[in-house]
Write a protein that binds this DNA or RNA. Sequence first.
DNA 1: TTGTCAATTTATGTATACATTGCGAGGCCT
DNA 2: AGGCCTCGCAATGTATACATAAATTGACAA
Lengths: 267, 267
Amino acid sequence: MNASHSKPAPSTAVPAPLQTPVAAPEEASSQVVKVQLKLREMILAGELAAGSRIAELSIVEKLGASRTPIRAALMRLEQEGLLAALPNGGYAVRTFSEREVSDAIELRGTIEGLAARLAAERGVAPSVLDEARQCLAQIDVLLQAPAIDDEGFSRYVVLNRDFHALLAKLPGSDFMQREIERVSSLPFASPSGFVIVQANTPQARDMLIVAQDQHWQVLDAITHREGGRADAIMREHSRLAQRNLRDAMQAPGKHAVPGVRLIKQHA
Amino acid sequence: MNASHSKPAPSTAVPAPLQTPVAAPEEASSQVVKVQLKLREMILAGELAAGSRIAELSIVEKLGASRTPIRAALMRLEQEGLLAALPNGGYAVRTFSEREVSDAIELRGTIEGLAARLAAERGVAPSVLDEARQCLAQIDVLLQAPAIDDEGFSRYVVLNRDFHALLAKLPGSDFMQREIERVSSLPFASPSGFVIVQANTPQARDMLIVAQDQHWQVLDAITHREGGRADAIMREHSRLAQRNLRDAMQAPGKHAVPGVRLIKQHA
DNA sequence: TTGTCAATTTATGTATACATTGCGAGGCCT
DNA sequence: AGGCCTCGCAATGTATACATAAATTGACAA
């Protein structure tokens, strides 16, 4: 409206009819975020086939946004690891070999181990440690039940994610925190990625018991400034995720895990 | 942009300004890459002050490209770690605390250690190992001289970079290779980052001798499938970089290291 | 029938116009 | 005189037009 402000014009004061034709009235904040979320959802849901090329124009007609925010969202998803940049421009839904998945989880465990070691060596403010302990206490309550229903399970996923996020903050380094978030962005590399698999099986609870013990022990190690031990625990903790993911891929209902569709079976 | 100052022009609504073909034939590939390279150069050279905000329009008039490729380049530089995204949009030249620098180097050492361990555990094709050995042999030749001149020094930097790149390939995992490249993208976190510092000092050669010994030993460890040892060596190798960088920051001619300007002295 | 070349089509790369929002300067009211 | 409110500006976010290169398809010739 005020675009044509050639000079300090007399205040014509006409607010003018604000034409806001924006197709989607509300929802999220920016187009980029909306497109990014929607695309990620579509990729994980399998609506965009693994390995298939993604043309900007096809997204335009699917989501209604223009190419500029779509390009930005595609770049972010590439950074996130869900898309691969093609040599001659454009993107394709990324596929992962089992080794890549394994490497991704191993890398997460290694970096979480580094973070735990740094936290132990540098020391952590008691208040922050307490926050982590309270988080674990909530998980303890959850696990006291002899069997865990779906609702308790999804609560565990949330608490587990929170704990790992808290752990990433323990070294008191924004840099480490960001790198951990980055390496955890892939759905199956995420700390909570594997958990979703076998909700109601009897082994499910036992698995979580083991994981929870590692949670407590790493906090104990950090509290007692045992850096090497803290490192080792977090690495082993990630091996648990690797075991579970491997199981998940052989299970029939593998679609319970969002990203598994992107893992190419080596037949 | 037709606002008030600079730039033309009355724009008498003639729709004709057929954008003429980019006048110069240009030798580089794409605008995005050109802008990215130029901006990185300017940041490292200090032409863009550390911590200062970077407006897209200012880059437009500095480099001549339009906003679209500039935005893409800015996103890439943020991913690279040289820029920080501001909360309300826009970017600023990133500054680093000494701890962040330390963490970055530690992280690189940790991931290189993981790569070396994986290479040892999985085994490496002899041909690839030989390539790495030949690279080290060239460094050996360089270090046989009792003193190293500038030209030999820059040759070392190249060979050192090559060796670390080769090392990143040893696990045979594109994923690991990419992550190592990523974590090495920051100028001071790069394996060759610290080397540039003290070219002609007498201790310079000794430092390189130690580093080169670690190079050989990690290959030896990988050859003999000693994963833990390979891991430990690479971690310690990165501590050498940390020591050197700390020295470099206290040295007077610190401008020899490109990225040091971005490290804020904690007074 | 097959191979090759060319033309069309469709993709991304680029430039720019338009929209919107956050921040600051300036005036007005208290 | 000082604080608050408002207006204006400059920044990014968005949409789209234009340029160019790659891929596919069609036709023609061997």
